Computed example of a mutant assay.
Amino acid sequence: MKERIRALAPFALDVVLPIAAYWLLHTVFGLSPFWALGIGGLATMVNAIATTVRRGKLDGFGILVVVEVALSVVLLFVSGDPRVLLLKPAFFVGVAGVYALGTLFVGHPLVLDTGRPFATGGDPRMADAYDRSWEASRPFRTAIRSVTVVWGLGFLLDAVLRVLIVYRFPPEEITDSLLLSQVPLLAVLVVIIGYTRLRMRRVRPIVLAARDGRPPGYPGAPAGHAG
């Protein structure tokens, strides 16, 4: 889990940094929205390059970040429209949505891995039972896949709504669009986290049964446990 957090932290920073830079440069130092967002975008690219150098390798995510940021900065200066950089989070969230849905067809669903620490609490026996449940239990697989679908679609919905909101406002109202473009993600997260909690309630009893060696159909077992 810690390794996943460390791996994702630079990319989370790449989403947050332009917004933080905008507020600092525009609100505190009085730079125009154009220059505030432009400098924030350049800072993001520098951070992505520094992270890649520190890790000592250029992977797919590193290339994606550098290329996307460089492209958005070029478009900013060519078009003169600061709204271009506000689309950066939509890009990353959209990619995350496509990736989540893609894991339904290639490899294992994203939530199978991300949900393991929460369902097992770091207990090796629970982790083993969790993996065995994926192989043996149809309700387990259904819950994992459905939650993955909801996260993927939720991310894609946020990306689309973010683009619509950003371009709903003219460039001179960039502060308003910056604030309102964050609303869809908050609303989407509330819905999909609530759905995740409801669906994952079916997962832990199955894992506990597998850990304890209880056979399918034990009293209180979810229907179809044997898959």
Rank of each mutant, 00 (worst) to 15 (best):
M1K: 10
K2R: 13
E3R: 08
I5G: 07
I5H: 12
A7G: 05
A9Y: 05
F11D: 14
A12N: 13
A12E: 12
L13Q: 13
L13Y: 11
D14Q: 08
V16Q: 03
P18M: 08
I19N: 13
I19T: 14
Y22P: 00
H26D: 06
T27L: 06
F29M: 01
G30N: 04
L31S: 00
P33K: 04
A36M: 05
A36D: 04
L37D: 02
L37R: 01
I39F: 11
T44D: 01
T44V: 03
M45G: 09
T51G: 12
T52M: 12
R54L: 12
K57N: 07
I63Q: 10
I63E: 10
L64Y: 15
L64C: 15
V66W: 04
V67M: 08
V69R: 13
A70D: 02
A70R: 06
A70F: 05
F77N: 09
S79F: 10
D81S: 01
R83E: 08
V84D: 09
V84G: 14
L86G: 10
L87M: 11
P89H: 06
A90F: 01
A90Q: 01
A90V: 05
F91R: 02
G94W: 06
Y99H: 11
Y99L: 10
A100P: 09
A100C: 11
L101G: 06
G102D: 09
V111N: 12
V111Q: 07
D113M: 12
G115S: 03
A119E: 07
A119V: 04
G121A: 02
E135M: 03
P139A: 04
F140I: 14
R141A: 09
T142N: 11
T142F: 14
A143Y: 07
R145E: 00
V149T: 08
W151S: 04
F155V: 11
F155L: 02
A159T: 15
R162P: 08
R162G: 04
R162V: 08
V163H: 02
V163N: 08
V163Y: 08
V163A: 05
I165E: 01
I165A: 01
Y167C: 06
Y167P: 01
R168V: 13
F169S: 05
F169N: 00
P170D: 12
E173N: 14
I174T: 03
S177G: 03
L178G: 10
L179Y: 13
L179S: 15
L180E: 13
Q182M: 15
V183F: 02
L185G: 08
L186S: 14
L186D: 11
A187Y: 08
V190M: 14
V190L: 11
I193R: 14
G194S: 01
R197M: 08
R201K: 09
R202Y: 11
V203K: 05
R204E: 10
P205H: 10
I206W: 09
L208T: 15
A210I: 10
R214E: 07
P215F: 06
Y218H: 06
Y218D: 09
G220H: 04
A221T: 07
P222M: 00
A223N: 13
G224V: 02
A226S: 05
